[in-house]
Computed example of a mutant assay.
Amino acid sequence: MTTNNNPLRIGIVAGEASGDILGAGLIAALQKRFLSLEVEGVAGPRMQAAGAKSLFPMERLSVMGLVEPLKRLPELLKIRRTLRRHFVDNPPDLFIGIDSPDFNLSLEESLKSAGIPTVHYVSPSVWAWRQGRIKKIARAVDHMLTLLPFEASFYREHQVPVTFVGHPLADEIPLQVDTVAARRELGFDEGGQVIALLPGSRGGEVRLLGPLFLQAARWCHRRRSDLKFVLPAANEQRLTELKSLLADYSDLPVILLEGNSQRAMAAADAVLIASGTATLETLLLKKPMVVAYKMGGVSYAIFSRMLHTPWVSLPNLLAQRDLVPEILQDEATPESLGAALLQFFDDPVLTDQLVREFDDMHQQLRRHASERAADAVCKLLDSRTENQNNTTL
């Protein structure tokens, strides 16, 4: 790998915590390749710590479902217009949209039409629902970076330039997880079993799933009094909301954390988790999980009719079968979630088999993702420079 003496200026937008992790890793990898790197756009705390300048708080882009974005639409459109004007007036060498496809793809399309190269990092679930978006993606994106292998195959079939980079979390998380050390760090006494509760990082998720997950925890605890629970809050706002919820659950032995979700999952014997990127993290930590999700009734009615796959969780999508329980919407009750969790404790053979499959998947995704993503970005920049030189000649 050689260092480029030319300065590089990148526009970037990440809309939630998982994108912040990816963006920070990519920035660090690009800093190894360029002596001077300037990054600005919408960035979370990890990206800002890596040197990115955020023009808007990332939290303002974190919306869920189909109805909530409509309520916030005027604000979101204003942010996008401001970003577009900023980048068109001050063109970066490259724009990278990280996930958040409903926000980023339209921005990428307008920037690409203005002559700015665009990369989209993390494929939208276009293979699962709203498959017609592939046409917009082709117009908006010069290069797609996918985290999962089956996604890259889909883009190749539709002639969209793509690179499968693997997942940075698969590189970061060790193949062997020290559960005992994690419990010691969290202050758990020896003995008993631990369930981690992860109701999501967005406010809407915590409002819908937080009470449900605590009710499921109470259902389990009444049947196994030695069970303990750990509940990580994604940020300070979620911490305040979860503290308020826990006031009604003083009978539960729960450790509430601000952040540190990975340590919470590492300490657990099983995890009750909202469907989303964190299910992949749980897989990489080799933890049996029950995946649940709820959204507003209107949003779910629309979403369920548009879905083209029988699964919503990443472990099941990777396996292409029912590897872990998915319990959604009206079927997600304290009893159904609790019973699925306790099955892992009652059937050790099932649990051991699941852990072995998770280990195989971990190794498939362990590909030095941030470095591969940076390589793809550099190749795109080099090809653009070469084409411009050829045009000049």
Rank of each mutant, 00 (worst) to 15 (best):
T146Q: 14
W127Y: 12
K135P: 02
V119Y: 09
G166K: 03
H167F: 11
R130G: 00
F154P: 03
A152M: 07
H158V: 07
S201Q: 02
V126G: 04
V162Q: 02
Q131H: 07
A152P: 11
P168D: 11
E172N: 08
S123E: 06
L175P: 11
H143A: 15
A181R: 13
H143P: 07
V160P: 03
G200K: 05
S153D: 14
V162Y: 01
G191M: 04
E151H: 12
G166T: 06
T179P: 01
E172C: 13
Y121K: 01
A196C: 15
D189T: 13
R139Y: 03
A170Q: 11
E157I: 04
G132E: 11
E151A: 12
S153A: 15
A182F: 08
L186P: 00
K136I: 01
P149V: 13
P161I: 12
P174Q: 14
E190N: 07
G200T: 06
Q159M: 06
V162T: 12
H120A: 05
E185T: 12
L147D: 07
V162E: 05
A128S: 11
K135V: 10
F164W: 11
R133S: 03
E190H: 11
H167G: 08
Q193E: 15
L186A: 08
W127A: 07
S201V: 10
F188V: 03
D142K: 04
R130P: 01
G191F: 03
Q131R: 15
A182K: 07
G132C: 09
R130I: 09
Q159T: 08
A152Q: 08
S201E: 04
R130E: 01
W129H: 06
A196M: 08
L197G: 04
V141C: 09
T118V: 12
R130Q: 07
P199R: 01
V162G: 01
L169K: 07
W127T: 06
R133A: 03
Y121F: 12
R139Q: 11
V194W: 06
D142S: 10
R130T: 05
E157D: 12
D189R: 02
D142E: 13
E185R: 11
L186V: 11
V122T: 12
A181S: 15
L147K: 09
V177A: 04
R183Y: 10
V162I: 02
P199C: 11
L186E: 06
A138G: 02
S201Y: 07
